[in-house]
Simulated scan of single mutants.
Amino acid sequence: MPTAHNATQFAALGREWIAAWNSRDLERVLALYSEGAEMTSDKIQALGFDPTGTLAGKAKIRIYWGKALTLLPDLHFSLIDLFISPDSIVVFYANERGARICEYLRLDAAGKIVQGSANHLAH
């Protein structure tokens, strides 16, 4: 994680995360993640990638997100707010369909994302 709980650095990461997704540049998004990163989402299950909803490693995450980008040609995220802790950030955003989502992102000592979890509104 960035040293000394640097709120400015965390906020910049959250904004870059949104910008990377909006660029539709998968490698730009993946550059924010460590090689061994884990991603958890109910969409992983829905797209048939893993029944646990968790993928480990950039290679598997790249395949999943590559498919998701293909299925969502109008993908666009609008930042609502950012929340920080000493080792993580939560990016609260709305997608192109207006759904509000919280993305929990835990960071390593180098400031790379090691764990992500997409949290969707319960209905």
Rank of each mutant, 00 (worst) to 15 (best):
M1G: 06
P2H: 15
T8W: 12
T8K: 06
Q9D: 03
Q9R: 03
A11Q: 01
L13C: 08
L13P: 00
G14N: 05
E16C: 04
W17S: 01
W17A: 02
I18V: 12
A19F: 11
A20E: 04
W21N: 05
W21I: 03
W21D: 01
W21S: 00
W21Y: 12
N22C: 08
N22Y: 03
S23K: 02
L26E: 02
L26V: 08
E27A: 12
R28D: 06
L30E: 06
L32D: 00
Y33A: 02
E35P: 11
E35L: 01
E35S: 07
A37V: 12
A37I: 08
A37K: 01
A37P: 03
A37G: 01
A37E: 00
E38W: 11
M39P: 03
M39H: 04
T40H: 01
D42E: 15
D42T: 15
K43S: 15
K43D: 12
K43I: 14
I44T: 12
Q45Y: 09
A46K: 09
G48R: 12
G48T: 09
G48F: 05
F49E: 02
F49L: 04
D50M: 11
G53A: 13
G53W: 01
G53D: 09
L55I: 11
L55V: 11
L55W: 05
L55G: 01
A56E: 09
A56P: 06
A56T: 11
G57Q: 10
G57C: 11
A59I: 14
K60V: 13
I61Y: 00
I61N: 07
R62H: 08
R62D: 08
R62W: 02
I63R: 15
G66A: 01
K67M: 05
A68P: 06
A68E: 10
A68V: 10
T70W: 04
P73G: 00
P73V: 02
L75W: 06
H76L: 04
F77Y: 13
F77S: 07
F77K: 14
S78W: 07
I80T: 13
D81H: 06
D81P: 00
D81K: 02
L82W: 06
L82S: 01
I84A: 10
S85K: 08
S85W: 13
S88A: 13
I89N: 06
V90H: 00
V91T: 03
V91A: 03
F92Q: 12
F92W: 08
N95C: 12
R97G: 09
R97L: 09
A99S: 15
R100D: 03
C102M: 14
C102T: 12
C102Y: 04
E103P: 07
L105H: 07
L105K: 09
R106N: 01
R106K: 13
L107H: 07
L107R: 02
L107M: 04
L107E: 05
A109L: 14
A110R: 09
A110F: 10
A110I: 02
G111F: 07
K112H: 13
K112Q: 13
V114P: 01
Q115S: 13
G116D: 13
S117K: 11
N119C: 15
H120S: 15
H120T: 14
L121T: 15
L121E: 14
A122S: 15
H123N: 12
